[in-house]
Design a binder for these strands. Sequence first.
DNA 1: GTTAAGTCCATACC
DNA 2: ACAGGTATGGACTTAAC
Length: 816
Amino acid sequence: MQSNIKFIPIDYENFDYEGMNYIRIIGRSEDKKRVCLIDGCDVYFWVILNKGVSDKKIKELSDKINKISVVGKQRESKVLKTEIHNKNFLGKEYKVIKVFISNYKDSKDIVDKIKFKEVFKIREYDLNYITKYIIEKKFKPLKWYEIKGDLLNNSNEYGGVDRIDVDLCLELKGIKEIDKGEFKPKVLAFDIETDKFEIGKGEILMISLYGENFRKVITWKGNSNQDFVEKVKDEEELIERFVSYVKKYNPDILTGYFSDGFDLPYIKARADKLKVELNLGLDDSSPIFRKGALMTGKISGLVHLDIFRFIKIVYSQYMQSETLSLDDVAEELIGERKQVWDFISSDKIDNKKWEEFFSYNLRDSELCYKLFEKIWPDVFEFTKIIEEPLFEVSRYSMSNLVENYIIHNLEKYNEIAEKKPLNDAIKLRKEEGKYEGAFVFQPVAGLYENLVFFDFTSMYGSVIVSFNLSKESYLEKKEINAVEVDVGRKVYFSKNIGFFSKMLNDIIEKRKEYKKEYNENKIPILKARSNAFKLLANSSYGYLGFFGARYYCREAAASTAALARIEIKKTISDIEKNGYKVVYGDTDSIAFLQGKKTKKEVNDMLKEINDNLPGIMKLDLEGFFIRGIWVTKRTGDFGAKKKYALLGEDEKIKIKGFETVRRDWCDLARKTQSKILEFILRDGNEKKALEYLKKIVNNIKKREIEIKELVIRTQLKKSIEGYKSISPHVAVAEKMRKQGIPVGAGSLIEYYIAESNDKKSLIRDKAKILGEKGLYNIEYYLKNQILPAVENILEVFKIDVNELFDGEKQKGLGEF
DNA sequence: GTTAAGTCCATACC
DNA sequence: ACAGGTATGGACTTAAC
């Protein structure tokens, strides 16, 4: 029986049946039914032949390849057929043999048997089946299709893989992409509370769930009068209830915050220990964990989405939050906070406290649900643009996103994909070392008035496109008409525009287009679309220089930086030739003094510069600023780079690089510095700033400052054992560990510096955990926090803060 | 034992 | 290991006396 339905693919999973590869796709129909599709596609790779191999020889080779088979433990795999094609590889056309095989898992073994001198390269045997399938069938994640399929409910075909909990299961017969726009998945958020933070230790105390018209806290602790709390008899039952609620709610997406690294593996570990089945999958399977640098938990049939992972990659660089904790992120993205709760040992919790704990737990799931709604447009757009399954895209690193975009767009250029570098190639690439990067203008410290900022839009991306810099265009030796770049030695690039440049140009064009669309219609989905292309454009340069990239090309990356240096320096000198004084610049931005010139004159100059920029490069007006301050380095008497503060025409202050924006300085130092910068920028002089400083210094001395303003936060970047040098935060982390507080790579260590009798001791010996008794160290906070934060700012006004601090010593409290 | 240079480390800018 | 290089500056470590 055939069915025709409108369908959106959400999750893809491959399986083997009788030695062949198949795919199971889970998605929704237009009428919100959960549908499973079974399908398959050809599995093949390409044998690229050397130039000049005769047709007769190619035929011979094909015949030999056709006879290859490998016998493994699992199955026998063989070549099914071969075809001869003309395809491009790195921009050059070749005769290639398309080799179809029975099982992609054995492709490497088959490839190893193809050893003929006529073979130039063999490629695409390292693409995974799902990627191949999506490319082959053009059946893309999160796009709507009209599909045809034969009913396959609970049959024995395909070994019974269709026996899963869905409304409809079809053997796919045909697809047609349709334009049906958005998709609102059914989402369930979850969060657990435990009495230990380490996976494999402690017990699950409660699990909360939050969905549309659904909220629940399941627990075996305490007694509750709150309607969302459900009490069960023990932890076993807690896990069982959790599973049954998930199944009943029937979500497309189960989401958590850091649930890859904590919630899901924790539940799994407890389920294993208690011998309870964690059959969350639609086929009743348990989550499968992949251990890498980060653990990843996959549930069959529904998408487990860890919001933290996506935010870390896609949002974090544009976020203000100092940590990626649920509390900070929720505050910044949706303006809501977690419920306050101090963790206490579960045996010390009384009934009233349990009630608080339950609602705390539910609140976390609620925030998670709301965060999901907030990030969904971005996740949705990225998935559609990258064309990889949602589960993967939500976890991909930036390089993975770029690379998969490339792989899914190669067909337009008749290109065969380059292979992934193996370990030895990666090692070699790493040994090549760094290359010279961006140019940073040496500023002169001072307070400047009426500044103009220009910046290049997507500078590196536009350099790559304009000069055609990529692996395919890179020439081993000089050729006529080639682009020559000096990166310490001369390197050359062909002027034949390659697919990499074309693709990147396309990305930049789309970014422009969607940005324009968004400006005309400010809806989240358009912003997400524009943002996704911006991110892709901005990271393609990093991708060129990334050792793990298929299209890694150190020469192209180095040339991009070199040409960007040349262009910004040229532009600086153009601006100077127009009679302006340039005061700063970093990579793609230039700051100069407007002087007596009008805004129109500035804009005219901008236009003229743009008329003469190469290729698609473009300089933009970033803005006009009323004042700006640059300071000297603490060591040396010349201006510090990457540290400045501006007052915009909109009266807003922008602070870059200063301690104010560094989270490893105490709040008091940061606040004091930002106030001082603000006084100076707004008033144009230092008088009020100095008064303010004196007040703060006085307060410190009188011990009127609260410890919480003096807390220093430093992240532990690796395990405690990994440190060669024991800095204060490492010493504090060690102390915490001894007290049984869990700390590890990634923990943000909080401490303050206390008074100590031993004057010679190191700072780390005076560092105390919050809550540890002690008086804050006046000398430390004056000399190591406040003074260094303000010294170079006031120096611009010829004020030696040291004198104030020291003078005070001689005069007693005198002046202060 | 003290001090200056060197190293490690975290965090920022773009 | 999971985009790149450039830069500041604190605190510890080490070398030199």
